[in-house]
Structures are given as C-alpha cells and as structure tokens.
Amino acid sequence: MELSVSPSSKPSVLKRSGAAQKLLAFASLILLIVVFSLSSANFFKFDNIVGILLATAVTGILALGSTFVIITGGIDLAVGTVMTFCSVIAGVIITYGGAPIPFGIAGAIGAGALCGAASGFAVSRMKIPPFIATLAVMMITKGLSLVISGTKPVYFVDTPAFAQIAMGTAVEKLVPGLAIPNAVFIFFGMAILASLLLSKTIVGRYNFALGSNEEATRLSGVNVRFWKIVIYTITGVFSGVAGILMASRLNSAQPALGQGYELEAIAAVVIGGTSLSGGKGSILGTVIGALIMSVLTNGLRILSVPQEWQTVIIGGVVVLAVYTDILRRRKG
C-alpha cells in the first residue's frame, strides 16, 4: 500500500511550491486589508470584520468542498444548487415534518453526500466528463429543490433554535462581549477538518495522486473509481453544511437561490493556488482565496464603487492570481 502512493518525491515539491503561492495570496490579502483600511475609516471595524467573515462562511465552505474535486483535476458545478437542495431538505424535515433540528441537519448532510456520490458515480463509473456530470446534477437538484418546496420558501419560524446555528454566538458565553456568530467558527472548523482530511488521511493522499497521474495511480493498484466517488461525496457533504448555514442565516430555505455560488467557490479555490489541471492545491490556500474574494467585495462596497465595476475588478483579480501562479511555476 505504501508504494502505491504515487511518486514519492512529488509531495515535498508540491508543498514547497504551494507554500510560495500561499504566501503570495496571504500577502495580497494583507495588502487589500491595509489599502481598504487606509481608504475608509469604516472598513477596519470589529462589526465589519465580523461581517466579512460571516459573508465568507457559505461560499467559503463550498470552496473548501470544491477544493477536493478540483485537486483530482475534476470540477463540481453542482455545489451551489446542491447546497440549496440540502437547505430545502432540512426545511422539509424540520418545518413540514416537525422533526427535531438534528434530524434536519442529518438529512441535509445526507442529501449532500448522496448528491456528491451521484456526481462521483456518473464521473467514475459512467465515465461522463465531470463538467457534464455535475452540470446535470446541478440542473436536477435545482429542479428538485423547487419541486420539493412547491416553489415556496420554507421558513424556520417555529424553530427559533435553527437560526441560532449560524447566528448564535456561542463564543460569547466563554468570552463575554466577543459577539462572533457561530457560522464563522463553523467555517474555520470545516477548514481544519478539510485540511486534516487532505493532508493526514489516505483519502487526501489518493486525492493528490489521482490528480497528478490518474493512470499511474490506477496501475499501482488503487481503486480509482471508488476513491473518486468518495471524493465527490466529501464535496457533497460540504455543500450540505453550507446549505444548513445558509438556511439558518436566512431563517428559511430559499429554493430559487444557489446558482452562481459554484463559480464564486471555484474562483476562491483558484485564487488560493489550487490548479484546475489537478494534483496541486491546499485548504489554507482556499481559505485565503475565499477571504480575498469577500474582503474585496466588502471593501469595494464600503468605498461605494459602482456594482458593475466591482464585478470587473474581481474578475481581474482572478486572472492576476492565476497568472502569477503560472509565471512562478514556469520559473521554478
């Protein structure tokens, strides 16, 4: 088994080059924060920083999940609509079914895992290209969300505890006055979990191996098909968690939302230095990438930059981030 983990020299090289990209991304994040703080007195304030972190939570968790699939050299276009689907499932279980909240949470995460497994199955067993397979899952889940909810939002008004999942401030009980919503901690918790999965477990090792050379991995005796399904399932689970947070924050499952979030997630992953061609990437990078996206959006809003230009600027940043990565790799 030990032998099967792809070329053994590669991981250390990967780690080094990854570190450089992360450093660069981190430096850009700090630079952005400094620039916005100098441009507006209203930027670097406790409430606003908390606001930025909160705004990162949902897309950030989607980006964490996407990182796994992108490292295999695949893509998951369904993360946004799967997220919505999971939030609707939670709503149906809790509000329509009258079941206790934990059942709703379990249902949502289970639904996410199922959607992910379906994508994984389509990709690995049916050999449908990831782009097409997940596009199909995107459409299916989007439609199902509307069908199941009856094209109506599902509210959690009878279960006030549900809103507390994202917006409660558990930390305030430990440190009085520190009102940081749970969603922020859930995001960082999920990041740590993702990071451990990717760097400390066999899933993570096979994930990188698959991405750098699928054929070699298969030839060395790894059940590539099985592990691909596992990896897409992980992505689905992350979408499920994001769905719970989204529903909790809006105190409702909004069946029509979700599309478009996958692209923001992919942008965050790419800014964080994960390569779309697979085999290379890190969770820390994705966290920084997601933070860059939301700091940029928030900062430009605070400066009242017209919306049209905000989008143009963010697009420019994506190009810049990927280009510096390519340049640096060419030199190395």
Binding site: S40, N42, N48, G51, A55, R301
Partner: peptide
C-alpha cells in the same frame, strides 16, 4: 444581506 451590511458599515 451582506451588501446592506457593508452599506451600514460605510455610513
């Protein structure tokens, strides 16, 4: 929501 929060922070 996030957008309105930024507006409130800015003003």
């Amino acid at each position: 929501t996030d957008l309105a929060k930024a507006i409130i922070q800015a003003h």
